[in-house]
Design a protein around this nucleic acid. Sequence first.
RNA 1: GGACAGGUGCCGGAGUGGUCUAUCGGGCUCGCCUGGAAAGCGUGUGUUGGGUAAAACCAACCGAGGGUUCGAAUCCCUCCCUGUCCGCCA
Length: 423
Amino acid sequence: MLDIGLIRKDPEGVRARLATRGATATEGLVQVLQADEERRKLVGEVEKLKSERNTISKEIGGKKAQGESVDDLMAGMKEKSDRIAALDRQVAEVEVQQEGLLLSIPNLPWEECPKGTSPTDNPVVSKWGEPKKFDFKAKDHVALGEALGILDFTASAKISGSGFSVYKGAGARLERALINWMLNLHSGEHGYTEVSPPFLVREASMVGTGQLPKFRDDMYAVEGGELFLVPTAEVPVTNLHREEILTEADLPKRYVAYTPCFRKEAGSAGKETRGLARMHQFDKVELVCIEHPDRSMKALEELCGHAEAVLQKLGLHYRKIELCAGDLGFGAARCYDLEVWAPGMGQFLEVSSCSNFRDFQARRMGLRFKGADGKNRPCHTLNGSGTALARLFIALVETYQTKDGKVEIPETLWALLGTKTIG
RNA sequence: GGACAGGUGCCGGAGUGGUCUAUCGGGCUCGCCUGGAAAGCGUGUGUUGGGUAAAACCAACCGAGGGUUCGAAUCCCUCCCUGUCCGCCA
């Protein structure tokens, strides 16, 4: 959520920065300013009346206590109260309107965000490793996995339909080993506190991180309740400190959490849907950081480095790209994507998205810290996948496949997996 | 799911219609005192919105939302949460 004070103070500056996201990003700006002006006018009016009412009510109390007549004071009080009630209703109405508009306006891109309007404008920041070369025709993970009996798409389709997966045997164990290994890495070596959060969250939490109200169609809602299945651990974990005022000494807060992620993926049918690449349910280990505004850009580099460490330790070729303003997610001010090379599919797959939201989410969830000057300011929040499973699984089995259809597992996972080779 | 008891400030804990400007105690801040500390004394101590150059000042907030009233922490309704017991259950 943008700061209404900033919009009021510099509407043209805000408009110009939002416009770098694309033409539709500035929708609602005019209306939100109108609502703000209307709201302040009404509030001024009603508070003056309330002040008068408070004064007279006290006088009535005092006179009654001394047995004096209060008839003259009572005259007109009912009308005043009715007028206040009517104005209060108007204020509430305008507030709801203003809040709704503010919640639907995306974040301001970082001042130095790459310009651009589509994914093709995203600059490649760096590459790590080399694409794996084979002296045979590399299979994709679907062919490999089904032949090895570690993936069963027939079963998952039967149980739940398309967009779901069944891992079996060494496949299931590999999934679990990867989750454990990543949690151990981030909590043990990168200084994150491990959290195991709820997988169902209330609407307010989804509003806090920005999924709602705008992206309701992408979320799974529990029938009859107001709970939603988490689309990412970012939601429950960032909301750990919702409506809190932290001290500067509390910052940074770093959390790592494993959760399954549930996404409807509405409108993405047919794109990248082969095998495990796009699921309605997938596992993910997520990194979350709550930081001081002065340090959040540095924290983004660190957090992204922690995600990169996963790919490096597994010896997987990947590239790091920075999203241009036009490709930035709704709440992000700056974002890096990590894309791992899947040699069987012959393409890069996004396994991590590391974003700095600055104060956008913090404003929505009332997450503040008390500064040295005693003033409360919104914290900055960041998160990044560290990393997403399914696609990591794809890259791993496709990269380490052998000519005879086996998979040779990197040494880092041997102990947790209990074997060096699958097949 | 059922019954009962609760939810007040940083913490404990009063307050059942009117100077509540939320008693009191503890904690913490700053100051005095002291060689230094403790004790003691004094002082201050929330959030949000409006307002202002900044203040002053004003309004709202006693779990949340409605209602009654000139006036609500207090009375009424709905909901949420916590505790205890019962039921159910991994």
